[in-house]
Design a protein around this nucleic acid. Structure first.
Lengths: 138, 138
DNA sequence: TTATGTGCAAAACATTTGCAGGAGT
DNA sequence: ACTCCTGCAAATGTTTTGCACATAA
């Protein structure tokens, strides 16, 4: 945040960043709002959106352009991949090596100036597998 | 559509499918609505949404869970990847081989039952590169 | 005939924005 | 002081839904 000129260090920004840093989930703006509101009850949802957007632009957090209806945010900016549960829509990190070379691959295959890529796996998380198994015993 | 029991072959469905098949772009529901409305002026946007969703569920079209604010749809159901322009938000197919094996990779790395994956590249399309070049001559 | 589908309009969400007052620098 | 930022509320944009009527099977 301090690497951006004209970006003030407000209480709201500090707390948003702190709360985002506390979790390993990939919360939506609304979830961040709920977390932050416990410490700053009067904060506005607009402020949360504005600041998550700004921080993502300046690169101190990551905005996940994943499927689903809501954007998600992540305090970790290192490149990594995600897996989303098709049942409960939870998003988790997945620990497989990032395929840096496929950007060049893609660059050769199209006329775009390729900037990056994101791999999103879909599957069924352990919790939802469990629920399914319990159901099949009925 | 005919592989689904209880799914009637209505004029609306046929035309939605036909129009989607005509284009190689990856139209949003609203864009499909505009295309279809030229032939069926009284069709409702809700009908378009309902049917795109149903067809995607039954596997005769593809719903792209890409970034951006709107869902996009594709008459091609074969697995392939996409690139999205970070300037104009256009989505195009990208012709690099699908990495079937990385699902197994992912399966070993997490406890999910991995169902599939999608790679979304981001970059700048030729049109937007052009615009940028023109601007820099000012 | 009857379950399913449609058009229309309203509702439900997610996100953005305008503005007057508040707070970092 | 002088911007930039915030809270609030209203606006916007996308998708879903309720319902009475229509229509494919």
């Amino acid at each position: 945040m301090d690497n951006l000129p004209n970006m003030r260090l407000t209480t709201q920004r500090q707390i948003i960043l702190e709360e985002l840093g506390k979790v390993t989930s990939h919360p939506t703006a609304n979830e961040v709002y709920d977390m932050v509101r416990k410490r700053l009850p009067r904060i506005g949802l607009g402020t949360v959106y504005r600041n998550l957007e700004l921080m993502a632009e300046s690169g101190i957090i990551l905005k996940l352009e994943v499927g689903g209806t809501q954007k998600r945010f992540d305090a970790t900016t290192e490149s990594h991949y995600h897996i989303r549960c098709t049942h409960c829509d939870k998003v988790e990190d997945i620990d497989i090596p990032v395929q840096y070379h496929i950007n060049e691959h893609a660059g050769r295959a199209c006329n775009y100036e390729v900037l990056g890529h994101h791999i999103e796996f879909s599957g069924i998380c352990v919790d939802c597998q469990q629920v399914r198994n319990e159901k099949s015993y009925n």
